[in-house]
Design a protein around this nucleic acid. Sequence first.
RNA 1: GGUCACGUGGCCGAGGGGCUAGGCAGAGGUCUGCAAAACCUCGUACAGCGGUUCGAAUCCGCUCGUGACCUCCA
Length: 497
Amino acid sequence: MSHAQKGPLYLTNTLTRRKEEFIPLRPPHVGLYVCGPTVYSDVHLGNVRTFTTFDLLYRWLRHLGYTVRYVRNITDVGHLVGDVDEGEDKIAKRARLEQLEPMEIVQKYTNGFHDVMRLFNILPPSIEPTATGHLIEQIEMVKRIIDAGYGYEANGSVYFDVPKFAEKHAYGELSGRRIDELQANTRDTEGMDEKRSPLDFAIWKKADPTHLMKWPSPWGEGFPGWHLECSAMSTKYLGQTFDIHGGGMDLKFPHHECEIAQSVAADGHAPVRYWMHGNMLTVNGRKMAKSEGNGFTPEELITGNHKLLEKGYSAMTVRFFMLQCHYASTLDFSNAALQAAEKGLERLMAAMDVLDKLKPAPAPDAAQDEAVKALAQRCHEAMNDDLNSPVLIAELFEGVRLINSANDGKVLLSAAAISGLQELFRAMVFDVLGLKREAQAAADDKALDGLVQVFIQMRAEAKARKDFATSDRIRDQLAAMGIVLKDTKEGTTWQRA
RNA sequence: GGUCACGUGGCCGAGGGGCUAGGCAGAGGUCUGCAAAACCUCGUACAGCGGUUCGAAUCCGCUCGUGACCUCCA
């Protein structure tokens, strides 16, 4: 299916703050870069939301027929704790606290991150570069920035000269900031005499002799600045100008603003054509963040072992919950909302099971063929309209009603209508939304199923002789063990509660 | 303090000048031995106050409230 046949895709470009038609630089190729995690601690649900957002984008672009090179980095050095380039490296600090090698910290939390991505059915990127694996590229980029006159060395560190850059180029365009306002609002911080302006940021940082993570450079032993990593790696794998750069809202300033400045300084032009930012996950109206103490890990979510959680929720429930909200809006976490999502997802998945077994009506209603096509069209339009997954899901529930009505014999579907629905649901639910059936292992458990079938048989016999006391007792006792029976026209089925 | 968002029915959330999503919860009904599921029907919402307009939840202004960023943050 070619993207050309599916109508234009519109995306909100946060650089222009408008919805724009997406036209790749070199179709059918699309270059996509997303800022990955700094691997110094467990990811929390807020992080998962951003990666889910760009997973949805990645999946939709692929669905449209694009060949996407998706680069999502691992930040394993250079991300500092605390204020204005004076803090300790996050990973080095963690290594000290856990008494491990920095690279053990990196490996440990990278593994954990990958586990979480798998759990939420987030596809792996095409390339997952690490900052420590690209020191040469970063040093080269620092050199280019210095050569262009926008970087200066001070005491073994190299800083980006923001005021000088701002004389000739736009600085603050992405985040809507003005250089004079920034200057007026800068706080005084200690120990920044090395920097000519408080707005300047480190692109190479000198390491003291006790520092574990350091590399030789033309300016002495040190390590790269955080903003520089993304610029160097995106340029290496996607070129000096590429299609889409994504990340969380909170990275807009300073991180992404600095990336733009670095690329313009080093290579002479803006690096990114479409900037996209996912909004935050909030808890009781406040951003989920480790410093707030309101973040929980995926493990806590699933077990329900957290003071904010009334019970555990599955990864797919949470994924569905997130996709029911547009990526650019804040999403507030609550138990009531999660429970609503859990029920809704259950209904969606149940309808897909029904759809698999649906038989064409002997005298189908031809008008329904058109209805199915129109539904598919609306689904595509929703996604093409800035990845409007909540509207897509709303449309899919229209389909759910159609499927269930057909199952009840109230709507007469042709074979073509049924296969159209099957194709639509498979594509949208599994491929695009990235949902999957889960916890089906129980129903697939042959021994358990055999056992339950014995009880279903016994209950059917009791029902046949109108011994409802016995049939109800069987049903109630199974329910108490977490096995729920449902009587349908085709017989009795069971599932775990 | 500066910049920028947002405030939608009981809850979560789309939409965004006239056609008023969807999910969950609730009420009534159909089916069923009963239940469950499913289907049908129902609730008529857009913070407040002004303004623009034939018409505003949607545009503009003000007020109130909330949040994000301005320092590390997905």
